[in-house]
Design a protein around this nucleic acid. Structure first.
Lengths: 353, 353
DNA sequence: CCGCTTTTGTCAACCGGTTGCCATAAATTG
DNA sequence: CAATTTATGGCAACCGGTTGACAAAAGCGG
């Protein structure tokens, strides 16, 4: 009974090196185990569950890991655990600036917490969105849906599978992060009223947009409070072009101030009105929504109700990550504040239309 | 006795279901194998290498897979193969609109080819960038670096590990996708010359920006050709604010036309000049670079040299994917054309400064 | 009808970690 | 100092696919 280690060579199981001592292909826990003279499972424990191994083997293993420049193989880890340290974000349109800040907020939070962000776009199509969501579901721990176009039932179905957080929409039974239009909108309407406006128009977004309805309700409520008349106009698309097309109806409406579903509409509307010789804000006040990148590039710069989009992105990510860690509410809405950003496109009426 | 399930428990090998007949946790190839009455490896082959199994077992297996609603487990596949069907994209700044179209182009191409895009940002920091790159390297098949800030050697080191494609910069030995400034820039300068300008200024970007130097060289070359005088000015940051700060130097330079490193600088510059009562383009012509989102929101809308950013993104993705498939050149630069977008911010000088 | 090549399916060993269970060493207690 | 806990490391069975080697089955010419 000389030594214990002898039958070593017979090792019937246990992975072997890929190319012997290849510098590139990263080291495994088996390499560390050999170098540190312990079992691979001990290495695994030392590296993942703190306190499970004694301080001195811990040190031994950490040194060996450092020396071999070890990095865990995420796939090997994901296979038995199902955890990937990754979450998905699906946006309706990558080129829509509304989503830029959401993406950034989510990405920043992800990186801070050692998660990786996987991005997908639905191209504004409910079915593409669902396909993308299902595809992502296989590889991520959770999902964030920003302004989703699919219907509530599909969202809930996804949420049954893995944690899902929704931005810019409320879905019963699913955690949501939604800007509360109230504060910003009432500031805006109050400001318009103070500037002598008596009738305001709201240019709505797409009919399937949950948020567009909330904003219209907000406009109505705030107008009532300020004793203004509010009329609702429709738009073809929530884009700059859609805003241009809406100019006709706006002029015909008799309103002296317009609130739009989003900033793109406001910008297009302003361009078209100015092209028609209508002064902004002297003859018409314009207030947008969101405060997207570029909202202050216009002349005059756009007055808008800011949605804290970055906060929505990071807030959703934080909620999702909390959910993954088992803390945090599995449903309910997180409200974030909106605020009026007063720039040059709104003010007192100085000349009649 | 009586009970059926009893001997089942002894099954020594072969993965078992997570929760028995759980509808959620997806089926494995073992389930398919059992249902189709073949071996799991046959299932694996039927599903991955076409032609390896006979048509009739193929059909059998496909039907079983469809019935069980099978989806491969990407991690289980990645573990032995190392292939993840995923690639990473690192951008310097997610909120910089220059990258929006790049991201979109890459994402679109990725989705088309059944790849998944993983996004990371370097926050303009070389070290963060390198960290992000290394982290991503573990989980992706390849990497796209858009306007990387790290130095050439680090990029080459990454490229030795896995395929890397660089956008907006040339790195010897690494495949690159770079807009060729020549065409658009010479159009721009010729147009300025035709409008009677004799002296142009170039407001440069960050010193470490490879592209800023190329653009300056292009301005010089085109100016020489058109017999214009060209002066170079520096900027603090390549942002709207940086553009505002550069206004002083621009006015002092004696130039009647300015080309800027990017559109953000141009927009800031224009804002500041206009605020100082200088008419654009009557007293000063301004030409930007890139044609970002919002470049046409300004009054007057910005004349700019458009870089086909979306094309860069998709071009880089295509090159990367080709590389992963073993086709395509392992190095060399792909040039994409730039073009002048003539809008309102440039024209003939009508009044002296 | 037989031997030989070509298909086609099975076996089993991986890929690189994780984790329940157990044996042993160490620490605590009576 | 013996008895009992408790802390620590090892063993081995997974997670769900992939793949080389091989044997059985099928096709084929002579």
């Amino acid at each position: 009974m000389t030594d214990s280690k002898t039958p070593d060579a017979a090792r019937p199981s246990g992975p072997a090196h890929k190319h012997g001592r290849d510098g590139k292909s990263s080291a495994t826990i088996y390499d560390i185990a050999k170098l540190a003279g312990v079992n691979a499972s001990t290495v695994s424990r030392a590296l993942s569950k703190p306190g499970r191994v004694s301080p001195k083997t811990q040190k031994l293993i950490e040194d060996a890991a450092a020396e071999l420049n070890y990095q865990v193989n995420p796939f090997a880890r994901a296979l038995p655990t199902g955890k990937t340290n990754t979450f998905g974000l699906i946006v309706a349109d990558i080129t829509n600036p509304t989503f830029f800040d959401i993406i950034r907020g989510a990405e920043t939070t992800a990186t801070e917490r050692d998660y990786t962000l996987v991005l997908a776009e639905s191209a504004e199509s409910p079915s593409t969105e669902l396909t993308a969501a299902r595809r992502l579901m296989a590889t991520v721990d959770g999902l964030i849906l920003a302004s989703p176009r699919m219907d509530d039932d599909n969202i809930r179905a996804l949420a049954r599978d893995k944690p899902v957080v929704v931005i810019n929409r409320e879905v019963e039974g699913v955690p949501c992060v939604v800007p509360d239009v109230h504060k910003g909108l009432s500031e805006a309407v109050r400001n318009l009223a103070a500037n002598g406006h008596r009738k305001v128009a709201y240019v709505a977004g797409p009919p399937e947009s949950w948020m567009s309805e909330r904003r219209w309700e907000g406009v109505q409520a705030a107008s009532e409070w300020s004793r203004l008349e509010a009329v609702r106009l429709e738009s073809a698309k929530p884009t700059v072009d859609g805003g241009r097309q809406a100019a006709r109806d706006v002029r015909a409406s008799g309103a002296t101030a317009v609130l739009t579903y989003n900033d793109l509409l406001a910008i297009g509307l302003m361009q078209e009105l100015q092209a028609a010789g209508i002064a902004v804000p002297d003859q018409m006040s314009i207030v947008g929504f969101d405060d997207i990148f570029g909202a202050d590039f216009t002349t005059p710069p756009l007055t808008t109700v800011r949605s804290p989009l970055g906060e929505c992105g990071s807030g959703a990510a934080i909620r999702l990550l909390d959910l993954l860690l088992g803390k945090g509410e599995p449903a309910g809405t997180l409200s974030v504040e909106t605020e009026l950003v007063l720039r040059g496109s709104s003010g007192r009426i100085l000349a009649a239309l």
